[in-house]
Design a binder for these strands. Structure first.
Length: 490
RNA sequence: GGUCGGUUAACCGAGUGGCUAGGUAGCGGUCUGCAAAACCGUUUACGGCGGUUCGAAUCCGCCACCGACCUCCA
């Protein structure tokens, strides 16, 4: 199996040709959310970007095992200090729910939102709480290799010791001395030997809700541990791609590298990919900053910052219009522009189905367009360039429809295949035009109304024909007079 | 303070050492009874100052501003 896909590897900071370890199989691991509140626009970006990658790899013929974890335990509010409450436990207390109820509640909306956004589900969606044994086994391995120490029933990773044998900070470019001086100094008695050491296992306080027995104490695993344990379990000691948000690069992914390397003596991940953040007013959208807009709010328009509702496909298109390694700024104007752009694209795809080929030679080079589309994706998933090429084709499709351009049969077939492949299969866009059961009836009714309006027009009764058009407009139906008949849409 | 990244026209957003990115909005035209859609044409750019070069928005240096990470965050 051959491909020409170059992806930017955060580890080497270069675009590298993607060569899977065991073709045709590809192992893809992506960090999923901690499920203690609703998913927002930022979560959508990560999900959509790695969905694009997954879809493209599938299109290229790979058998992708796509693993995306769910963090449902062990994620503390103050990870560095190893203190503070577990996020999920806190929410559980606030909402008077079982921790697993909190998890289920937000996991359900996460799944619903991602389905609305037309992302393909991962092959495996492991949860941290379901892999306590695996995490404990990993801790044991790290302890045996001498890269961790036990204090009062908690286990910490010994970064200094690790750094002697392997280099710590490869991914983030961080240097230990810098960390030592810049990491916040902790008051009182810290169990850690160094401030940059991190917890592998934490002894639970008596009031702590989520806890498990272990050789060291009744407690719970550290946050970074789950990804190391679960990725290796499902994808093997060494696997192809690890993805996640740029904000996870340090410390989360750096710690993951340290854990896996310490345990297995080699690095697990061959390509690290990081998507950039969504910004709002030039600031990162984040739960902790309180400036986020949830996906449900976007879809319903129910948020003070929103001028209207935006459909899931509008959101998807908006995200695909920017390169995944750039920040993307949220605004109503940008979203509105995306909505219009998407409409234009989807309408052209519909138009394509109505096109009639002629015996004249085509005035457009589809093979060249196809080549450019692949080149765009191969260049580190450059979806904005891909879209710009697809819009070149849109212009041509419309010009043929208007009788300006010419198209022959083979070109028409090639163009249909190209748009089906790239728009639906790879970019994962879909037609959102509503309702099926009522659709037929509406179509029949519209036929009658259009005929009545035509009669009025024939009789030069324009007040009547205008009234029909305007009133239809009010209920969201737009009429369009074309050369050979009347189109309508809502 | 340390590390990294960004600054592109009205807005969003690609990209490249010399050739129109694209979408949205605007303007002029075709079409239309009018409008919408579509098509054709078109106006605003590459933060500032130097340098390298025949040529730089694109490479280098300095400066300014903005952001991310260094707690948790997709």
């Amino acid at each position: 199996m051959q491909n020409n896909l170059f992806i930017y590897n955060s580890l080497s900071k270069k675009k590298e040709l993607f060569k899977p370890l065991h073709p045709p199989f590809v192992g893809l691991y992506v960090c999923g959310p901690t499920v203690y509140s609703s998913a927002h626009l930022g979560h959508a970006r990560g999900a959509i970007i790695f969905d694009l990658l997954n879809r493209y790899l599938l299109h290229l013929g790979y058998k992708v095992r796509y693993v995306r974890n769910i963090t449902d335990v062990g994620h503390l509010e103050d990870e560095n200090a190893g203190e503070g409450e577990d996020r999920i436990a806190k929410k559980a207390r606030q909402e008077q729910l079982e921790p697993m109820e909190v998890v289920q509640k937000y996991l359900n909306t996460y799944h619903k939102n991602l389905e609305q956004l037309n992302t393909l589900p991962p092959s495996i969606e492991p949860r941290a709480s379901g892999h306590i044994i695996e995490q404990q086994e990993l801790i044991k391995e790290i302890l045996e290799k001498g890269f961790a120490y036990v204090v009062n029933g908690s286990v910490y990773f010994d970064v200094l010791k690790y750094n002697e044998k392997y280099k710590y900070g490869k991914l983030s470019g961080r240097i230990l001395e810098d960390l030592q001086s810049s990491t916040r100094t902790l008051e009182g008695h810290d169990e850690k030997r160094n401030s940059f050491d991190f917890a592998l296992w934490k002894k639970a306080a008596p009031e702590h809700i989520m806890k498990w027995p272990s050789p060291w104490s009744i407690g719970f695993p550290g946050w970074h541990l789950e990804c190391s344990a679960m990725s290796v379990k499902y994808l093997g000691d060494v696997f192809d791609i690890h993805g996640g948000g740029l904000d996870l690069l340090f410390p989360h992914h750096e710690c993951e590298i340290a854990q896996s390397t310490a345990a297995h003596g080699k690095e697990s991940v061959r390509y690290w990919m990081h998507n950039n953040m969504i910004t709002i007013n030039d600031q990162k959208m984040a739960r902790s900053l309180g400036n986020f807009i949830t996906l449900d709010q976007l879809f319903s328009g129910d948020h003070p910052a929103l001028k209207q509702a935006y459909s899931p496909m509008t959101i998807r298109f908006f995200i695909l219009q920017a390169h995944y390694r750039s920040t993307l700024d949220f605004s109503n104007e940008a979203l509105l522009a995306a909505e219009k752009g998407l409409q234009k694209l989807m309408k052209a795809v519909e138009t394509l189905e109505k096109l009639k080929s002629s015996s004249d030679a085509s005035t457009f080079d589809v093979a060249n367009l196809k080549k450019k589309c692949y080149e765009a994706l191969d260049d580190d998933l450059n979806s904005p360039i891909l879209l710009s090429h697809l819009f070149d084709g849109v212009k041509y499709i419309n010009s043929v429809f208007e009788g300006i351009g010419k198209i022959d049969t083979s070109t028409l077939d090639a163009l249909k295949e190209l748009y089906n492949t790239f728009v639906f299969d790879i970019l994962g866009l879909k037609d959102e035009s509503a309702g099926e059961s009522d659709e037929k009836l509406t179509g029949e009714l519209m036929k009658i109304i259009i005929e009545l309006r035509q009669n009025a027009k024939n009789n030069k009764d324009f007040p009547t024909s205008d009234k029909i058009r305007n009133e239809l407009n009010l209920i969201g139906i737009t009429l369009k007079d074309r050369k050979d008949g009347v189109d309508w849409e809502r």
